[in-house]
Computed example of a mutant assay.
Amino acid sequence: MYAAVRICQVGVLPALRTNTARSGLVGNAKLVYRNFANDARETFASRAARRKTLRERAMAPAGDTAFTIGKGALIGGSALGLGALCFYGLGLSNKEGAIDRAMLWPDYVKQRIKDTYLYFGGSIAFTAASAVAVFRSPTMLNLMTKNSFLAIGASIAAMIGSGILCQSIPYKPGVGAKQMAWMLHTAVVGAVVAPICFLGGPILIRAAWYTAGVVGGLSTVAACAPSEQFLHIGGPLAIGFGAVFAASLGSMFLPPTTALGAGLYSISLYGGLLLFSAFLLYDTQRIIKAAERHPPYAPMPYDPVNASISIYLDTVNIFIRIATILAGGGNRRK
């Protein structure tokens, strides 16, 4: 009997242990599989939550961050401009600038620069007159204030087309086809910016005075700085222009009441103001260099109309952004 019990123990107990071990392995495998499935679901859910959170952050109500950064950048740029004006204006630079060579310029160089800035002043006058005329015409004003993509595209095409036409015609002194195309281009720009008159006379007058101060100060910096100090920033300016242009397009589709829309609007407003101020430095020195180095008896004469268009468009962009800021455009999230 005892031997039979031992035999049963020898035959049954190992089998029981084996089955128990197998049951434990199966249970552990099920537990591992269950945990793995739970981890996979949690990982997928967390990733989905992160994607949702990113979208929610982009479309969340706008805060003060974007506009605070934009204002800070503008203050920093203004301080840098004033510092450069004092530094170069006091003659602290070791290199000579255009203002140091002005006394040695031949008469034709002086006449070229004079003609360029006369056309620049005429462009501002024609643009202002065109804007006022369009603003006083209900039909034209209704056409310019349409927010349809067709109207916006037509306005952009008209500005670009008239600008290309003006710059493609050879320059001849006096009144000719070149001058007619120039007046047409400035009139088109004035018509496009006419809706800014809704801001009111006091704001526009203040913006005009501020713009005159900015343009005058930056032009003085460019004239006092070494001749090619700002001619090396053409590449960064082109990149910055692409960024501001993309931000301007994006702000057309995203309202500034959202976080992403406010960021794009801040780049377009404050970044654009800094960008076109830098463009003014670049274009001013480019005009001086072209006036000095263009051969006096070249087959194609120096073109003051084309030279003035660059600083004219810089000034228009600066004026629009200053007027928008004065009108409270930096707080459009409200």
Rank of each mutant, 00 (worst) to 15 (best):
V132P: 09
I75Y: 06
G153M: 07
F135I: 00
G235T: 09
A298M: 07
Y119W: 15
G91V: 02
A212W: 03
L80V: 14
L249K: 05
I203N: 06
P226N: 03
M1K: 01
F36W: 11
I152A: 15
L141T: 14
I124M: 11
Q285I: 00
P61A: 15
Y312G: 07
A191D: 07
A129V: 03
K95T: 12
E42C: 05
C224Q: 12
I233T: 05
N19S: 12
R136T: 06
F230M: 03
K289Y: 06
M144I: 00
A158W: 09
L16G: 08
K178W: 08
L25D: 11
D64T: 15
I288N: 09
T65E: 02
A131V: 10
L326E: 14
R293I: 02
A194L: 07
T116H: 02
A21T: 04
C8L: 08
N306C: 11
I320K: 07
V175M: 12
P236F: 15
G201A: 14
I320M: 05
A73P: 10
F44D: 11
T324M: 13
K178H: 11
S130T: 06
A128R: 11
V12T: 02
A60T: 08
G72N: 05
A243K: 00
W105R: 14
G234I: 09
L237V: 03
E42A: 13
